[in-house]
């Protein structure tokens, strides 16, 4: 199954719902007030949040169509609006060759999928022929280290660990040393999940970030928030808070195959403009995939992605 079809599958519920309301909408030349509101509602139900939904609906309302234009045309137009909004944020996680190691710090709230993402990233970079090291910075959750070690075994990657309950900044520092000494290409540092309003835990994260920077000024080269795709508008609050303590450079959105609506990606793009590096569309190792605007927009509005790619030229 390609990731597009998985994503389409995952987003089917929201897109089919959107499709339904779009079908009834797109039969006239311009959108009247009532259909505009309906469109806005469909977008809100896809978790875009009221502000972004309103902005997008208005953007579409401003467009004019021929009388005979099919609802497919409307749909594609909407898709293109989404593509335009997402193109800038769709940026792969690029590993800098001049760094050894290139350090990726993974942060986020509990249960967003950081540890799994760390494992999948390790596998991803390994398959590109890079040497990878994992650091089990989550010294809080009892099973986290074992979970990461499991990924280490599966992907044949060294995992730097600390004692349960030990200082995770120390684990990060130790991992920096080990990775540097071993000439590793990519070091992925997992951290404990923390709710963004827990200031003492956020301070701890700031310290981890600082300690990494002490070892290598340019590190972490990527500070990535891992967001659960089923979370609603709280994703905005999470991103804002983590940006403040860990100077985020990008995001990875997981669980887009579940009951996720996906629309929050647009709200995030509108609010922060942070790169979306990858999306998780399943539990398999290769279900963590690069994010592309066309594929995502196509899955969300329910058109084949070629329809959106062609017009991008």
């Amino acid at each position: 199954m390609s990731w597009f079809s998985k994503l389409t599958d995952g987003l089917k519920k929201s897109s089919s719902k959107m499709s339904a309301s779009l079908t009834s909408l797109f039969t006239s030349k311009t959108l009247d007030a009532a259909s505009l509101e309906e469109l806005e509602d469909a977008l809100i139900e896809a978790d875009m949040g009221p502000k972004t939904a309103m902005a997008i609906a208005e953007e579409l309302a401003a467009m004019k169509f021929d009388k005979e234009s099919s609802q497919e045309a409307w749909r594609i137009a909407l898709g293109q609006i989404l593509v335009t909004r997402l193109t800038d944020v769709a940026q792969p996680l690029a590993i800098r060759e001049d760094q050894s190691p290139h350090v990726i710090l993974l942060v986020g709230v509990n249960g967003s999928g950081k540890t799994t993402t760390a494992g999948k990233l390790a596998s991803h970079f390994k398959s590109q022929g890079k040497t990878v090291m994992l650091a089990a910075g989550d010294t809080f959750r009892a099973a986290a280290t074992e979970q990461l070690q499991g990924w280490g075994q599966r992907t044949d990657t060294e995992v730097v660990t600390g004692q349960e309950g030990s200082d995770s900044a120390a684990v990060a520092y130790q991992a920096m040393q080990r990775a540097t000494d071993a000439g590793i290409d990519v070091l992925i540092i997992d951290t404990a999940g923390r709710l963004q309003n827990r200031s003492e835990l956020m301070d701890e994260l700031a310290k981890i970030h600082r300690v990494i920077g002490k070892y290598d000024e340019s590190a972490p080269h990527d500070s990535v928030i891992v967001l659960d795709g089923t979370v609603g508008q709280n994703a905005l609050s999470q991103t804002k808070a983590f940006s403040e303590v860990a100077q985020l450079t990008g995001m990875i959105i997981t669980k887009l195959d579940g009951s996720a609506k996906g629309g929050v990606v647009l709200a995030l793009a509108e609010e922060f403009g942070l790169p979306v590096h990858m999306v998780g569309v399943g539990e398999q190792v290769d279900d963590l995939q690069s994010f592309t605007a066309q594929e995502f927009a196509a899955a969300l509005v329910g058109v084949p992605q070629e329809a959106l790619t062609q017009d991008q030229a």
């Binding site: 809100i44 896809a46 978790d47 709710l195 609506k261």
Partner: peptide, 28 residues
């Protein structure tokens, strides 16, 4: 997010929920 309504509906229709426990209310 918006899916809460579907989740709750599905569970309720299928197994008849008698109460709800809301977790992670310590977040913001």
């Amino acid at each position: 997010g918006q899916d809460a309504v579907n989740t709750a509906q599905a569970f309720h229709e299928e197994i008849g929920v008698t109460g709800i426990v809301l977790t992670r209310m310590d977040g913001d």
